[in-house]
Write a protein that binds this DNA or RNA. Structure first.
Length: 429
RNA sequence: GUGACCAUAGCUCAAUUGGCAGAGCACCUGGUUGUGGCCCAGGAGGUCGUGGGUUCAAGCCCCACUGGUCACCCCA
């Protein structure tokens, strides 16, 4: 038997109500905040993602990307994120001539070859929101607000922002902070395990979200990036926190919240919700003022976030939320009879469902040679309100039987009057 | 990539010391010629994840692989 590739999932009919609900609310929020949808290809030139990730992360990134050669020997990669592709499109279409900032969102699958675990898949679907071309902290606030609004609208409980500023690449900002961090940890090198010693050498910021016991103890007194910001980054951060205060949006400054890639600057944030254990974050984002320049464009600020739909649905289910019910057909047209009468009845049923559907009335047609009993059972399971029965007596009299499945009552209605009658009785019990 | 646990019908799970493959739900049919839900009866549905090995005999023991879950690594 074939099975879906590791880390991928089928979305079954019974899951679709959740998907439709989450996507509809995301679209609704985008409209409310004035974001426009823009879609980018599912694969891009490999180099885009490699350069987007920066030198330091290239090795790690390569390892987890789905990269392949096409028949023209071009190296392509299934997108492992949205931001790089969206910024490529921003540059390619000269979007800097549009009114700034450009507010974009997109929804679609992204691909990373990681070991699957709860809420983490090799193919997952992300809602991604970006604002390009404006440095105002109010933009940071706007982006955080749209994420927040989505989760509130979905009814999530236990919501809280985690926020931090990791500064910029100015010498008196993050570089100075990283030196301070190294200076703090270096005397304790012997206490660290192998993984954290490697972090100390390669990516000291990552020591901050280490889950190792020894590092946990050291964390309490470790220097905080938000205390080591240059004047500009400090002012940006303080202004943003002021906006959050004024809006009464709950946050905690999390000095351990960092990002792995060099182009991230200033604001980083996540939203945490009750629900699915180790993966508490329902969205993660940050400011990337260095990215567009890294891709060969003019220095342009940007900020955005991504939120995994699968994880949102897991959270919805864990919190016991149910998506809105979908409208389903309310009528079934059943037919019965032997030989020529059966054929006539089936033809009449075909005509009636066609007419009902053209009036916008959802109608089901049973198939095969099932007994009337079997057809009624199926109607019950399908949840229809009315069953029209066409058989020998009905054909002879020109009046068709209409049975209400809710109370079992049954009446006859003239054939010509039936579509209008049903149309006016939809939803009426 | 590392570690732990796991894999039997569509789903949830049984199967004694290694000795005939099972249940509930779901699906189909029937319970008198044309009437749903409840009930009753019957039916269909399995390479016991895959491939090797041990054994007279393997769902059960051993090995490998594939996949799942959880945590780590990493997290654009």
């Amino acid at each position: 038997m074939y099975q879906a590739p590791k880390g991928t999932h089928d979305i079954l009919p019974e899951d679709w109500p959740y998907w439709r609900h989450v996507m509809a609310v995301a679209e609704e929020m985008a409209a409310l905040f004035g974001f426009e949808r823009m879609d980018v290809p599912i694969f891009e030139a490999t180099e885009l993602f490699e350069r987007g990730a920066g030198e330091g992360a290239a090795v790690v990134v390569d390892k987890e990307m789905y990269t392949f050669q096409d028949k023209g020997n071009t190296s392509l990669t299934l997108r492992p994120e949205f931001t790089a592709g969206l910024m490529r499109a921003y540059l390619e279409h000269g979007m800097k001539v549009r009114p700034q900032p450009v507010k974009l969102y997109t929804i679609g699958p992204i691909f990373r070859q990681e070991r699957p675990q709860a809420g983490r898949y090799r193919q997952h679907t992300q809602w991604n929101v970006e604002v390009v071309g404006e440095l105002d902290p109010a933009v940071d606030f706007e982006v955080m607000s749209i994420a927040w609004s989505l989760f509130v609208r979905l009814g999530f409980r236990g919501l809280a922002f985690q926020i931090n500023s990791i500064g910029c690449n100015a010498v008196d900002c993050r570089p100075r902070y990283i030196e301070a961090l190294k200076a703090y940890y270096e005397p304790h090198r012997a206490e660290l395990n192998e993984v954290d010693r490697r972090r100390l050498d390669v990516n000291p910021l990552r020591l901050l979200d280490s889950k190792e016991d020894a590092s946990q103890k050291l964390l309490h007194d470790a220097p905080r990036s938000s205390d080591s910001l240059c004047p500009e980054c400090r002012a940006h951060f303080q202004t943003l926190l002021g906006y959050l205060d004024q809006a009464n949006m709950p946050y905690s400054i999390n000095p351990r919240l960092v990002r792995g890639f060099d182009y991230y600057t200033k604001t980083v944030f996540e939203v945490w919700a009750e629900g699915i254990g180790a993966q508490a974050a329902v969205c993660g984002g940050g400011r990337y003022d260095g990215l567009i320049e890294l891709l060969g464009g003019p220095s342009t600020p940007g900020i955005g976030f991504g939120s995994g739909i699968e994880r949102l649905i897991l959270t919805l289910k864990a919190q016991g939320a149910t998506p809105p019910v979908l409208s389903r057909p309310v009528v079934q047209v059943s037919y019965t009879g032997k030989d020529e009468i059966g054929r006539q009845a089936k033809l009449a049923a075909l005509d009636l469902v066609r007419e009902l559907r053209s009036l916008g009335v959802g109608a089901l047609l049973p198939f095969g040679e099932r007994s009337l009993k079997s057809q009624l059972k199926a109607a019950d399971k399908a949840g229809v309100q009315w069953v029209v029965i066409v058989g020998e007596g009905e054909l002879a009299g020109g009046e068709w039987s209409v049975r209400s499945l809710s109370d079992g009552s049954q009446q006859t209605i003239a054939r010509t009057a039936l579509p209008a009658w049903l149309h006016s009785h939809i939803g009426v019990e």
